[in-house]
Every structure is written in C-alpha cells, then in structure tokens.
Design a protein around this nucleic acid. Structure first.
Length: 757
DNA sequence: AGCACGCCGACT
DNA sequence: GTCGGCGTGCTC
C-alpha cells in the first residue's frame, strides 16, 4: 500500500492528502512540510502518515519538501488541535491557524534541480537554467512551469527556513603595505577590531567600538579593506525573564502534586502565586518543564516575574518578533528544565519534557479566543495535559461552576481576606455620577494624602448625546447604537464599528434644538468630577483611550486613578485606601447567564488590587440588596461565596445552562432584517427536521443590538448534553445558504449577545 | 484565508 | 460604455 501524508494547513480547510516529497518515503508526524497550493506553495504540518489505495495515490500530488527533521508540533498538541476542531465544529486547518502561531509563515529558501537522467531540453521555455544537475533558486522559474515539472516528477526540490540577514560592515581584505605607516595606525586598529569581533552595523559604530575617529573607519570602506555584505543574523536569545520585585515571599518547600486535575481557589493573589510557584519549582527541580497559560498579556509579567525568583522562566509574548518566537520554540524543544509562561499560543509549544500544565486565572472570560475557532483555551489546556499524561492545575479567585465541573481530583480552598465593603444606594443620592458618600470618602483621601481607584463602566465622557427637547440620541449610521460622546476629542464615536464624527450643532430630529450628554457617565466625566473633589491631588485616567504615565502612583504619591475595569489589572498601588465603583450594577447588568458569577469574581479580584492592605471597597448601586453585594458583605465571606457558588451551579443545572449542558450560538446575519429572520428560521426548521428536540433549540431571537456594521443579526441557540452531540447537530447547518446570508457559529459562547466577526 | 470570477450600481 | 463593490466557489 502506498503511504501518504495527511497535512494540516493554517487555513479554514480540512486536512489534505499529499504523497511524500519526491525521493522520500515519508515525513515525521508533526514536521512542517511545504506543499503545492493554488499554483504556489504553502507551509503545513504533517498530521499523520496514512495508507492510501494505489488508484487514490495516482490522484494525489507530491509534497514539495519537508522542512523539519523532528516534530514542530508534538503529539499532545496535535491531539489538542484535533479535539478543538471537533468540539467547535470547525475545519482542522482553522484550529491549527488559531493555535500554532509560530513557524508557519517563515520565509523559505526554495531550490530545485533536475532529477538524474532528465534532459532540460524537453521541459519547455525557461528551463535552460536547470541543466547541469545543480541546485537553483526556485524563484528564477515561473510557478506554473515549476508546478508542471513537479507533477511530472522531473525535478527535485529542497526547502529550508531562510535565516534572517542584515547588511553589515565586514572585513574584506587583510592589512597590507598600503595600510602601513604612522598616519594609518587608526585604520589598522579599526580593521583589526573588525577582524577580531566580527561585522558591525555601520562605520560609525565600528569607529566608536574600536575607539578611532569616524574618518578612519570610512577610509577602510573607501579603500576596500572593509565593505557592506549581507550577513546571517544570529538567532536572538530565548526570552528568559528576570524576577520582579512583586515578591511572592518565602516559598515553603517545593512540592508537586500528583493529582491528575486540581483546583486552587480563593485566598489572595499572592497566596495563589505561592501555590503555583511551589508546584513549578518542584517540577523544574525534577528536570521537567512547567507550562503556565495565562488569560491575557498583562498577566504574563505578573506570573513570570514571580516564578523567575525560583526557577528559570521563559515567556511567550504577542509582541515578540517571529525570530524570537522561533528561538523560544527551539529552546523548549531541547528540553531545558524551565517554566514557560504565556497566553494560549504557548499551548502549541514543543515542550520536550513537559511535566505539568497550569492554568492561571482559570475562570477568566479572556480564555475565550475571539477569532478563529473561538475555542475556550482553558479547555484546550485540559486536553493537552490529558494527552501528555501530565497533571493539570487551575488557579482562580473564584471556583466557578465550570471550574468545579472538571472532574477534579484535588481542591485546595484558601480563605478569603474579608473585604471592607460599603454599598452606597444610588436611589437615595441627589448627585451623579458621584454620590454623597463617595464624595465624602474621596475628600478624606485628599485630606490624608492617600491613593484611590475609581472604576467606571465605560470610557469617553458619556454614553451619548441627546436632544434636550425631544430626547432623540445621535445614533450610529451603521449600528443600532447611540454614538458615545468623547468630550476631550470633541467627537462622537461608535464603540462597535469605530464610526466617528464631530458633534452636530443641534438635533436633526426636531430641528436644531441643542444637545446634552446622556446620563451614562464615562471615565472622562467621572475624572472631571473627581478632580473637583480632590484638587489639588492629581487624577490619572486609565482606559483604552488613555495611556497615562503612572510612575507617580507607583512611587506612592497621593492621587486618584479613574478608569474602566482595565485598572484592576494594574499592580497594587502602594498606599491605596479606597477602591470605588461608580455603578456596581454594570457588572451584572447585561443579559448573560455568567454575568452574576463574573460580577462576584471581578469584585474579589478588585479586592486584591490592594496588595496586602485592606482598603475601603465602596460600591454605588441601585440594588444594594443584590446577591453579589450580600455575598461580599457577609460576616463569613468564605461560607457566603461557597453558598453563592452552590446556588449558581444548581440554578445552571436546573435551567439547562453550562456546564450542565454544552451550548452553541448560531448567528445569522444579513443587510436586510427580513432575510436574516427568514434564514434563521430556515436553520431552526432544518435542525428540528434533523431530530433536534424542541427543548434543545432556542430562538430565533433578534440580537440585543439588532444591527451592527449594517448587518442585522438573529440568533439560534442549541444545547446538548455533550460536545459530540452538539457538534453533530451543527454539522447539519448549511453555513453558506447564499443570497448574502452570513452564518457564524460560536460553540461555548461567552458574550451571548456579541456580534461575531 | 486568499484568490479568481461574476454580477449589478455609479461614474469618467 | 467600464470601474469596483460585494458575494460565491475552490484549494490535495
């Protein structure tokens, strides 16, 4: 039986089959291969080697060449990607593109030569250069011609990753009699330096390094002793990190848990970091590698900085250049005992001696990947650990229903430091957006020269501008949303599609009446009000629109930070005495079955912003008896949180929400509202006919914001007892019904009402 | 995803 | 008339 390669390409396509490259019987699973694709070539990954029939083999095309001798994507990561594709009902190539972000778009050196005994004559125009049997740069030939020669088995091809090159000043010729004499001493010194230390980026830098005048270096170039050449850039050093001062404190003796799946929850962030460090230190001491996945880029520094105090620590960062990621991949593939910290793409790293997988802030909604397969990376980490037969340990401030549902073998519950919570009832307040109590405590902060953080539910000045007379808000022309008012820039902006315009002089609806800000206060508005209260203390703003220098804050200077929930990811300010929320209700106000649980989690994380201090936590709310505030304000917080958690779990099970069931959201959209509706109904009907029970199908229901970017969205929800059943149902959906209808599917949706892009 | 093709609306 | 937007189909 002929053997062939199943190849995954980083494209939304299924696996494709190719014969092994000419003259090779096969390529190792996990290795990168170059394959013919749409007239050109592309890099893919060998998923497996399969047997094919003789007849089938005749139909297949040959892979061009194999790049790696050893796997670029290890077996556990391949299992993870395959499982992700199955779970999200997506083509496997999309899962590959989502998870493997390193090494698939590298520049290649591609060469060809004639197969022994083939005559260049018969190859047609452009082939004369091929004669002689030497290797030639493939770029010299037309892709179509190359493709034909390949199909007829006339050429052999070789592909290597092209090393990065730079133009550098190199020594070209040894010093000779011409360079003699006292006057040329500086030139001789510069040349000797260059010969000893290697190429330099410029003559000026050579002069500085060799401690000669710039003229001497230039003279070397002029006379031909030195010149600019393309030099192969050495691979950058792997991204090792140094320990930060955000100390975790003393580490009790390192100890690795042997439970398959554990959860460490509650306590304070520093305690959870210590628990993580204990495990990681033990694993690295045993000469293994620990993989630590974190939900967002900001946590990489916090976690890696803490671990680096105990073990060699590598990081994966989104901003790293491709070469640096390559260096990281190479380092971990060597099996170097270390911790590797990063966001979800680290899950594909080829850790040769993986000993444990850690999921930091495991309940963070940021694990939901917003593009590609839209997988939840926490679940991918779980599959990876299982496939690699290593323990999985999750850490979070709150044991959410989903975290508790993962067949845990070990749970470590740390006691919460009791927050000093005060709720301030907005129904009894006459001022806005700062109520009387908040104004009072802010004034105290100013008086005592302390620090405060004020969290606001949106950025900008106000949620919109509306007519004073008729109340009509200025809407986005492309979305069913009011344009947000950014007073500092004097512009209205759509937070959904980015449309921006200056504020109109008057109301377009009732004819020129003046406009006023809507009451939904944003960071700009709140910052202005806070300034009035705390002047002359500085007020810093932190949100997506403001990149404020916070050095003074971290130096301990008095002042107030006003920001969106992004401030909760800051390091603890040193003398924080107040943490306030201008509208606590915003945390659970949106339509989402996870909203309440996430609101409580956000508040528990907020309490940790204080470091080891216990600042006042003041929440302005219209519902001071809401379960989130009652839980946080309870005398016994641990018991209250446990009770909240049990109730949440029971309620989710009773009403058929995750994790009791698996959900998928089918988003149908069209520029025309009626057609979006009709297409969604057709999908619901198809599913019913296919035998999906009525109670497993919800909708169609129009999205909360009906139109975004000129498209109307309608949702159909599916729920099943397990992933597999859900995926089988999804397979029945026609994803390309035509007529301008878009169908997008989100398995395990997190923001139930968001428009998918 | 990228690319080629084909269809209708707004312009030199 | 044809330019170019978007929608559709295909890739071993």
């Amino acid at each position: 039986m002929p053997r062939a390669l199943e190849v995954w390409l980083p494209l939304p396509v299924p696996a494709f089959t190719f014969l092994a490259p000419h003259g090779r019987s096969e390529a190792p699973p996990g290795a990168r291969v170059v394959v013919p694709w749409q007239g050109g070539v592309r890099i893919g990954v060998v998923a497996e080697v399969v047997e094919v029939g003789v007849a089938a083999a005749l139909e297949l095309r040959e892979a061009v060449a194999c790049i790696d001798a050893s796997p670029w994507l290890l077996a556990p990561a391949r299992r993870m990607i395959k499982a992700q594709a199955a779970r999200t009902a997506a083509p496997v190539g999309l899962a590959l593109a989502t998870m493997l972000t390193v090494g698939l778009d590298v520049p290649l050196d591609h060469s060809v030569r004639l197969v022994d005994g083939v005559d260049a004559e018969g190859l047609g125009a452009g082939a004369d250069a091929l004669s002689g049997g030497d290797w030639h740069d493939a770029e010299a030939f037309r892709p179509e011609a190359l493709s034909t020669w390949r199909e007829h088995g006339l050429v052999e091809e070789r592909v290597r990753v092209r090393p990065a090159r730079e133009r550098m000043l190199c020594a070209l010729r040894a010093a000779d009699a011409e360079l003699g004499g006292r006057a040329r001493e500086a030139q001789r010194r510069a040349l000797a330096w260059l010969e000893e230390h290697g190429p330099m980026p410029s003559a000026a830098e050579l002069a500085r390094a060799a401690d000669v005048g710039p003229g001497a270096a230039r003279a070397l170039v002029h006379k031909g002793y030195a010149g600019y050449r393309d030099v192969i850039t050495p691979l950058p050093a792997p991204p090792w990190v140094a320990a930060t001062h955000a100390a975790v404190g003393e580490l009790a003796s390192p100890a690795a848990s042997d439970a398959r799946r554990s959860l460490v929850h509650g306590g304070h962030r520093a305690e959870r970091l210590r628990a993580l460090a204990r495990e990681v230190a033990a694993v690295v001491q045993a000469r293994h590698q620990a993989l630590v996945v974190v939900p967002e880029a900001a946590s990489v520094d916090v976690v890696a900085g803490a671990l680096a105090a105990f073990v060699p620590t590598l990081v994966f960062r989104a901003e790293h250049a491709p070469e640096q990621r390559g260096a990281l991949w190479a380092e971990v593939a060597r099996g170097t005992p270390a911790a590797l910290v990063g966001t979800y793409p680290v899950l594909a790293a080829p850790l040769a001696r993986l000993g444990q997988v850690h999921v930091w802030d495991a309940a963070s909604p940021s694990y939901k990947i917003v593009s590609g397969t839209r997988s939840v990376a926490r679940r991918d980490a779980d599959v990876l650990a299982e496939a690699a037969h290593v323990p999985l340990i999750g850490y979070d401030v709150l044991a959410t229903a989903e975290l508790r549902d993962q067949r845990l073998d070990r749970v470590e519950a740390l006691p919460y430091p009791a927050p000093r919570l005060v709720t301030s009832d907005l129904r009894e307040s006459s001022t806005w957006p700062l109520g009387g109590e908040l104004i009072r405590v802010l004034a105290q902060v100013a008086q005592r020269g302390r620090q405060a953080v004020v969290v606001v539910p949106r950025r900008g000045f106000a949620s919109g501008l509306a007519c004073r007379a008729c109340g009509t808000p200025v809407m986005c022309p492309h979305c069913d949303l009011p344009l947000r008012w950014h007073a500092q820039r004097g512009r209205l902006r759509c937070h959904q599609c980015g449309h921006a315009r200056p504020a109109p002089a008057g109301c377009a609806h009732c004819g020129g009446e003046p406009l006023a800000p809507l009451p939904g206060a944003g960071t700009e508005w709140v910052a202005r009000e806070v300034e009035r209260v705390v002047a002359p203390l500085p007020v810093w703003t932190v949100d997506a629109d403001h990149r404020t220098d916070l050095t003074a804050l971290f130096d301990g200077d008095p002042g107030v930070v006003v920001g969106t929930t992004a401030v909760l990811r800051l390091a603890p300010p040193p003398v924080l005495s107040l943490l306030a929320f201008t509208l606590g209700d915003a945390l659970y106000g949106h339509e989402d079955f996870r909203a309440e649980e996430q609101a409580l989690r956000t508040m528990l994380l907020a309490a940790e912003l204080a470091g080891e201090r216990r600042p006042l936590l003041l929440v302005q709310t219209f519902q001071s008896d809401h379960t989130v505030w009652r839980t946080l304000g309870a005398r016994d917080v641990d018991a209250a949180v446990a009770a909240f958690s049990d109730a949440t779990r029971a309620r989710r099970a009773r009403f058929g929400y995750p994790p009791a069931t698996q959900w998928a959201r089918v988003q149908v959209s069209h520029r025309d509202r009626g057609r979006a509706d009709a297409a969604a109904s057709a999908i619901a009907q198809t599913l019913r006919t296919a035998g999906v029970p009525d109670d497993a199908l919800l909708g169609p229901v129009v999205a909360a914001v009906a139109r975004v970017r000129d498209r109307y969205a309608v949702h159909v929800f599916l729920r099943a007892s397990d992933d597999l059943t859900l995926a089988q149902w999804i397979e029945r959906i026609d994803r390309r019904p035509g007529d301008g209808v878009q169908v997008r599917i989100d398995v395990d949706p997190y923001d139930v009402d968001a428009h998918l892009t």
